[in-house]
Design a protein around this nucleic acid. Structure first.
Lengths: 203, 203, 203, 203
DNA sequence: CATGAATGAGAATTCATTCAT
DNA sequence: CATGAATGAATTCTCATTCAT
């Protein structure tokens, strides 16, 4: 009556498969990854894999969700500086524009671009966009309300621009060799721009 | 001695196939378009299609090349304003940010993203990036030399940022409904960004 | 844990497919046999067939290997007569020249002839030739050392001639109706010749 | 009313195509040669090619016929030595076993082997076999009648063996590298074989 | 006669997904 | 639950041959 394997074990197995899948998707991209690739990387049987994830899409979405939960951790109400919070959001903990890109990002782009005609996928992409948008929008709105940021520009528009810029960088980074994109320099330029748009003077 | 059809006809046929292919690629995207789709849309037989284009990649690249030749027409040496030239380059003839997106753009993104692990495709993408980069870089360099633009930022960096922004917009536009991306508003904001980077005061 | 079917079953399935394939290859020849032919003869699905053999070449080579293992059974060190051993090698158990030809032989010839420009296939053919050559060469060498055979001719040359003769017979047999080739009579003549070349007097 | 091009011209054109086709067949083999290969090598249009030869088979058979007419020229009645005549037949003018192989031979084998299930082709092959057989058989019969050759063996049987040997050599030569087949040595050995079978003592 | 565009049957191969054990 | 054999729809690409001009 009791399950043969512990719930813990199941969770672990699932996590292992996901981790293996991540590597495979990073290597081959979304479209060119086959379930067999995943099976082999995760050392699961075909049936086993389908036990945890009912198809390739489901599997990939699980990876997408994973990424999400990590990011939603910040719910700070009061911070000394919204600007530094924004920088952290953009470039990670240290807030300086030299962070690595998410290696799965190219596959994520693929997933949404190739699936843009699929209603379900489209809706999912939109939801994710909205979530990202909210985060930046909220932050900027608060900064504006607190007086730290100028409200010259609509907060949502700035938020959208941030995402557009990030997406553009991710795209170019996916396609071009590192030395072509100049991630760091472009990021620095974009930061200057944000400073201007939000009227932030400090470094 | 006389071929069955005139050279004109051949050219036309090829153009027709390309046009049909364009529609199909716009509708289904690069990955999900099959040669059969194209065959049917262009009303060509299998063999006929392969007579003109040896495979899907070749066919799509023909479409990519088409786009290229159209753009290279402008080689103005002396202009009254580099800024307005830049605006024209970005937003078309009238230079105002309300242009339509190239409907094939999403498929182009697909083409390069899904092919990022293919040496040939990668090289091709890089070449195209370089070509685009040169155009903007040249323009900005001239503007800087003429004193119209500030040289606070490296011209190439600004050029890269322009492409990044365009790519980001194209990407979001491919995935999200029109009303979400706010093309026009973001473009206007981006123009401000450029004004800041190039120290251009005029409207 | 337990697979759907026993290992035995799998082996059997593979053997069944091979057997069906053999019949199909015998009937249509190598080039004109399609995987569909095999599928239907073996009553396997397309995917099923490809599960066992990754392509036509692989499938055929499996048949070739099969034939090989059967022959390698003889490793007799001391025999009362190398001549009778040679006859057995040539004509099967009873050592008399009235054996049937391997019905797959024509397809084997096809396989190697049509593939003569393919590096892989060529190498494989050479390997097989060498293996056959070794067997006859060894036998003759021993016979010569033991004094049973004359060493007037180089053992390897005689061995090559044997293979040439066999190949010639196989070829003619593949192309001509049985009554034309006169397998038995030609074989008898060839035996006489070998007797002369090896100086063997007995019947 | 009079033909636009001279009959001579037509003949020449045909001969040119055949010569080009020969080279192509030598290079790719019968099965893997396409009409396009021939078109390009002969610099004929598709339609032009089909004007002269109604299909690939027809084209190849024309090449086969070509070879035939050249050889059938000798019909000497009285010769001083049937043995030397036989040697000439086997090894060309000088009658010594160091002749080159017909480079088209591998393709000829292919043609007949892959076509062995086609009634027409089979009949054609048989006819050719018979023709070859007759030549050798006649020669040997005469030699036997004249007393130069022993009639221990049936002349036809010996003739068949000659063809078998030639076919075997051609086959091995088609598949194996030159140094493996040892054409010359095997030929010399085969001459000994014939000497035995025909009881000819002289060199 | 010559041309070469067009045809379309057919071959190989891939892969997500199912399901009997 | 796990297994992995089996399925078969889909897709790409090839090539001999035809035929309108």
């Amino acid at each position: 009556m009791s399950p043969r394997v512990s719930k813990e074990h199941l969770k672990q197995r699932r996590a292992d498969i996901l981790e293996a899948a991540r590597q495979v998707f990073i290597e081959h991209g979304y479209e060119h990854t086959t379930m067999k690739h995943v099976m082999e990387a995760a050392d699961v049987s075909r049936g086993g894999l389908y036990q945890y994830f009912s198809n390739k899409e489901d599997l990939f979405e699980a990876l997408l969700e994973e990424g999400l939960t990590e990011e939603t951790e910040d719910s700070l109400e009061k911070v000394e500086s919204y600007w530094s919070l924004l920088m952290q959001l953009l470039f990670g903990e240290d807030g300086s524009p030299d962070t690595e890109m998410d290696p799965l990002a190219p596959s994520k782009l693929e997933f949404f671009i190739t699936g843009r005609n699929d209603e379900r996928r489209r809706a999912y992409g939109e939801k994710r966009y909205e979530m990202g948008l909210r985060i930046y929008d909220d932050l900027i709105k608060r900064g504006q309300k607190s007086g730290e940021f100028s409200d010259r520009y609509d907060s949502e528009l700035v938020a959208r621009s941030i995402i557009t810029f990030i997406d553009g960088l991710a795209l170019d980074h996916a396609i071009l060799p590192d030395e072509k994109v100049k991630l760091k320099e472009q990021s620095a330029l974009f930061v200057d721009y944000l400073k201007m748009a939000l009227d932030v003077s400090s470094s």
